[in-house]
Structures are given as C-alpha cells and as structure tokens.
Amino acid sequence: SSPEYTKKIENLCAMGFDRNAVIVALSSKSWDVETATELLLSN
C-alpha cells in the first residue's frame, strides 16, 4: 500500500477506530477520509 493510504489508515486508527474497520471503510469510500470517518462514526 502507498504511504498516502497508510497515513490515512494511521490517522483514523489514532482516533480510536479498529484498523480492519478503517481499511474496510476507506476502501468502500474510495479512500476519502471524510466519508469513511462518517461511516465509522455511524456504526
């Protein structure tokens, strides 16, 4: 995975989300952090 994707994963994990959930959310939202965060918060 690219450093850009890794940084997005790390940033969301730092907010307390599960790493696997973060990866699923990001990949399902075309790696857009904002919409992935909304998805994680709604679960």
Rank of each mutant, 00 (worst) to 15 (best):
S1W: 12
S1K: 15
S1A: 07
S1Y: 11
S1C: 10
S1Q: 06
S1L: 14
S1P: 07
S2N: 15
S2V: 06
S2Q: 04
S2I: 03
S2P: 09
S2Y: 08
P3E: 13
P3H: 10
P3S: 13
P3G: 12
P3C: 09
P3T: 14
P3K: 08
P3A: 13
E4P: 03
E4I: 14
E4M: 06
E4H: 07
E4Q: 04
E4R: 03
E4W: 03
E4L: 03
E4C: 02
E4V: 06
E4A: 07
Y5Q: 13
Y5W: 00
Y5L: 12
Y5P: 04
Y5S: 12
Y5G: 03
Y5C: 09
Y5K: 12
Y5R: 13
T6D: 12
T6G: 02
T6C: 04
T6I: 12
T6L: 11
T6H: 11
T6R: 11
K7L: 07
K7M: 07
K7S: 10
K7Q: 13
K7D: 15
K7I: 11
K7P: 08
K7T: 09
K8D: 05
K8H: 06
K8M: 09
K8P: 05
K8E: 10
K8A: 10
K8S: 07
I9G: 00
I9L: 03
I9P: 00
I9S: 03
I9A: 02
I9M: 01
I9H: 01
E10Q: 06
E10T: 05
E10C: 03
E10N: 05
E10H: 06
E10W: 00
E10Y: 11
E10D: 12
E10I: 09
E10L: 04
E10M: 05
E10R: 04
N11I: 06
N11G: 11
N11H: 13
N11M: 11
N11T: 12
N11W: 03
N11Y: 01
N11A: 15
N11L: 08
L12S: 05
L12D: 01
L12W: 00
L12Y: 01
L12A: 00
L12E: 00
L12V: 01
L12K: 01
L12P: 01
L12G: 01
L12H: 01
L12C: 03
C13L: 09
C13D: 04
C13G: 02
C13Y: 02
C13S: 09
C13E: 06
C13H: 01
C13K: 02
C13M: 15
A14W: 00
A14E: 11
A14M: 05
A14V: 02
A14K: 12
A14C: 01
A14D: 07
A14Y: 02
M15D: 02
M15H: 03
M15V: 01
M15L: 07
M15I: 14
M15S: 06
M15G: 02
G16E: 01
G16W: 00
G16C: 01
G16S: 02
G16N: 02
G16A: 00
G16L: 00
G16I: 01
G16R: 00
F17W: 08
F17S: 05
F17V: 01
F17I: 04
F17R: 03
F17Y: 06
F17D: 01
F17A: 06
F17Q: 09
F17T: 04
D18T: 09
D18S: 10
D18C: 01
D18H: 02
D18P: 11
D18Q: 10
D18M: 01
D18N: 11
D18E: 14
R19L: 05
R19W: 04
R19S: 08
R19E: 13
R19N: 02
R19A: 04
N20W: 10
N20S: 14
N20C: 06
N20T: 14
N20G: 11
N20K: 13
N20M: 06
N20P: 15
N20I: 09
N20L: 07
N20R: 13
A21R: 10
A21W: 02
A21Y: 02
A21E: 15
A21L: 06
A21I: 05
A21C: 02
A21K: 14
A21F: 01
A21H: 07
V22G: 09
V22C: 07
V22I: 08
V22R: 07
V22E: 10
V22K: 10
I23T: 14
I23E: 15
I23S: 11
I23R: 10
I23P: 09
I23H: 09
I23N: 13
I23C: 11
I23F: 08
I23Q: 14
I23Y: 09
V24P: 12
V24C: 07
V24A: 15
V24M: 13
V24R: 15
V24W: 14
V24E: 15
V24L: 13
V24Q: 15
A25W: 00
A25E: 03
A25H: 04
A25R: 01
A25L: 00
A25I: 01
A25S: 06
L26H: 08
L26D: 14
L26M: 04
L26I: 02
L26Q: 11
L26K: 08
L26A: 09
L26P: 11
L26N: 07
L26G: 09
L26W: 00
S27C: 09
S27N: 11
S27V: 10
S27R: 14
S27A: 12
S27E: 15
S27G: 10
S27F: 04
S27H: 14
S27K: 15
S27P: 02
S27M: 11
S27L: 07
S27I: 14
S27W: 06
S28V: 07
S28F: 01
S28M: 10
S28P: 02
S28A: 14
S28N: 12
S28R: 12
S28W: 00
K29Q: 12
K29V: 13
K29R: 13
K29E: 11
K29N: 13
K29T: 15
K29A: 14
K29F: 04
S30H: 09
S30G: 14
S30A: 14
S30M: 09
S30K: 12
S30C: 11
S30I: 00
W31P: 09
W31V: 06
W31K: 09
W31C: 06
W31L: 03
W31I: 04
W31A: 07
W31N: 15
W31D: 08
D32H: 04
D32M: 02
D32P: 01
D32W: 00
D32E: 08
D32A: 02
D32S: 06
D32K: 05
D32C: 10
D32Q: 08
V33K: 05
V33E: 14
V33A: 10
V33C: 09
V33G: 05
V33H: 07
E34S: 11
E34V: 09
E34F: 05
E34W: 03
E34I: 04
E34D: 13
E34T: 10
E34L: 06
E34C: 07
T35W: 04
T35I: 10
T35M: 10
T35Q: 15
T35C: 12
T35V: 11
T35Y: 06
T35E: 15
T35H: 10
T35S: 15
T35G: 15
T35N: 13
A36L: 00
A36W: 00
A36Y: 02
A36E: 03
A36C: 04
A36T: 06
A36S: 07
A36P: 04
A36V: 01
A36G: 04
A36R: 02
A36H: 00
T37N: 13
T37A: 13
T37R: 15
T37V: 10
T37D: 04
T37K: 15
T37M: 15
T37P: 07
T37Y: 11
T37I: 09
E38Y: 03
E38V: 05
E38P: 04
E38N: 12
E38R: 13
E38A: 13
E38K: 12
E38T: 05
E38L: 08
L39C: 11
L39H: 13
L39S: 11
L39A: 12
L39V: 13
L39T: 11
L39G: 05
L39M: 12
L39W: 12
L39Q: 11
L39R: 05
L40F: 01
L40D: 05
L40H: 01
L40V: 03
L40S: 03
L41G: 09
L41Q: 11
L41S: 08
L41P: 06
L41A: 12
L41Y: 09
L41V: 13
N43T: 14
N43S: 12
N43C: 04
N43Y: 07
N43L: 11
N43D: 14
N43P: 06
